[in-house]
Amino acid sequence: MAQKREKEFRISEEKIPSKAVSLIKSINTSGRIKWYYEENESGNSYEAKFKKKKKKISIEFGLKGNLQDVEIKIKEKEIPEKAQFEIRDFLDKYFSKYRILKIQQQFIDSAETLVNKLRNNSLLRETPNYYEIEVYGKKNNISKMMEFRFDSTGKMKILREIIPNNSDHLEY
């Protein structure tokens, strides 16, 4: 099974390609924008995190400043009922016991389309391409943390095991 290993750290705006910075500044965001540099198995990228209409939004850019995707954190009840049923049905069968930790909508489209839809807030009401769901669950009597990617209808497409950080220093 594929494993998810990520390392990310804060980075100042001056180090971000100007193309990415100007795109973000053209969106009417609320609060400050936090920039991160992310290293993972599929390559390195920049990520802008901000809030808009009380939603946590992150936009991922390639190293040359090309927009790759938009992710919006949501609650389970915001997933359409049919897709929600399919997702729960899959998780019920996959795990003997589980808890959903985080749900994000993932939108993939041209930079111009996504930014325009973010500007007029219409993206917040749209059905995404994918749902990325982090789950803490028990399978075959072993607890693990997993990330699943479901399509807009609730069909599971990709699963990865998340390797959690060591927590000995929090327990003892």
Binding site: E8, F9, R10, Y36, N165
Partner: peptide, 9 residues
């Protein structure tokens, strides 16, 4: 230095 504690942080 980020969203989670990675090595050398």
């Amino acid at each position: 230095q980020g969203k989670s504690v990675d090595f050398k942080e």
